[in-house]
Write a protein that binds this DNA or RNA. Structure first.
Lengths: 233, 233
DNA sequence: TTTCTTTTTGAACGCCGTTCACTTATTGAA
DNA sequence: TTCAATAAGTGAACGGCGTTCAAAAAGAAA
């Protein structure tokens, strides 16, 4: 029964091909400006066939968002592991996480924004339930990793899980907002500072806010160019 | 020539009526789910007439966003004036500003998000240029007021205009992200904390981040329920 | 080859933002 | 009051797009 398995593999491959084609078009034209004709042409198939693999246009970007979230989660885990080995300062780690977040959010942010919308009923989203469930669980997993990091790092004021979770939400919100502000306004052209400087500043200020006071001076002394090189994808 | 003036007033009134109708429908169904038929029915006019007053569906929400921004700017100014009279602590003021921001962003956030999108070319927006220009200038005005507040308050570390502006962007981004996180995930149902607690916590942590160290202990001592009552609109 | 199943197609459908030919109302002058 | 001229208002028609579907093509099993 090798035929059935081969067909299944092919089906998965085709699904991935369509998704990649969609990603390319979405990225160049934006989600709302992209027609399924565009996607079909890019994927070299007919429009109708798309619907054998995805329930709707929105289902496609939900799948993309899931892929993005999984990638970020992997990045996050790698960053945290590395920092544990190298005993980096919490500030150093946060900066690298922020950078990973920006990297991740730039291509996939649109999908996440639209998913946030979907909760508020912006569009009756017809997305495969499992996709949303998995997306949620991956995201919660990332948040949990961050929480553990906060709890385990001696620099932070947060004393317990609850307080750490609050800090995580704070961090997440900050990253979300700062990225939106930075990227939304024409990739920082509104600002005088570069992306790296901006991240650096943000993290430094936040660190003072959430670190124990005995670490404040240390935080304020650490300067720019703390970035680890991260593998380009 | 009283006729011309009356007509102009009527025209403006009709334009406002349509806008209010649109706002009601947008708020209950979301922007993308709202059809112009819906708006027309709510405003008790025909679809075609809408186009005598607005260039497009998107032009309508740009106008709404402008109204929202102007309201926030007024609120901000009132809050700052009041705090000057009462010599409130910077933390106290920031909390009230954050609350005003949340109040403002809840109904109008969708429009702002979509406008941010428009910069990234999500949709070829056809909006009256003047609306966008005014929106931008009102927003920059608010940011400038915040900057002045930062510079004038002795509690902050920021020494000059440039540093203060950076803090303002930080604050703005934080408010943006935290609101999106809080409101986007079902109005905070994801969190254990209430909106007020969340704002309070966020501001407190941020304050530590941007205040001079000699004010840290004071910041950490100030507790919840710092909110001024604000007039309900 | 033949039959059955799966994959693939693209024309057709319905919805919606937008336009336009047309009707109705309003105005100022005769 | 009547009459052109202009403005306000209507809703059917248009074009584009997401989605569906009947039918064709391809592939598997016999």
């Amino acid at each position: 029964m090798g035929v059935k398995e081969r067909k299944e593999r092919e089906k998965l491959q085709r699904s991935q091909d369509i998704l990649e084609a969609a990603r390319r078009v979405f990225e160049s034209k934006g989600f709302l400006n992209t027609t399924l004709q565009d996607v079909a042409k890019e994927a070299e198939i007919s429009v109708g066939l798309i619907y054998r693999y995805f329930q709707s246009k929105e289902d496609m970007f939900a799948s993309l968002a899931l892929k993005g979230a999984e990638q970020f989660d992997k990045d996050l885990e790698a960053t945290l592991k590395k920092s544990l080995r190298k005993k980096s300062s919490a500030q150093h780690v946060l900066i690298n996480i922020a950078k990973a977040f920006f990297d991740f959010y730039s291509p996939y942010g649109e999908y996440f924004d639209m998913l946030l919308y979907s909760y508020k009923g912006l569009k009756q989203v017809q997305i495969q339930g499992s996709t949303l469930t998995r997306l949620m669980s991956v995201t919660l997993g990332s948040l949990d990793k961050l929480k553990t990091f906060i709890v385990d790092s001696p620099e932070f004021r947060a004393k317990n899980d609850d307080e750490a979770l609050q800090v995580v939400f704070l961090l997440w919100g900050i990253l979300l907002g700062c990225h939106k502000l930075f990227d939304g306004s024409g990739r920082g052209h509104l600002f005088a500072f570069s992306r790296e400087d901006f991240i650096d500043q943000v993290v430094q200020q936040i660190m003072v806010g959430i670190a124990k006071s005995e670490h404040h001076s240390q935080v304020l002394e650490e300067k720019n160019s703390l970035f680890d090189e991260r593998p380009t994808l």
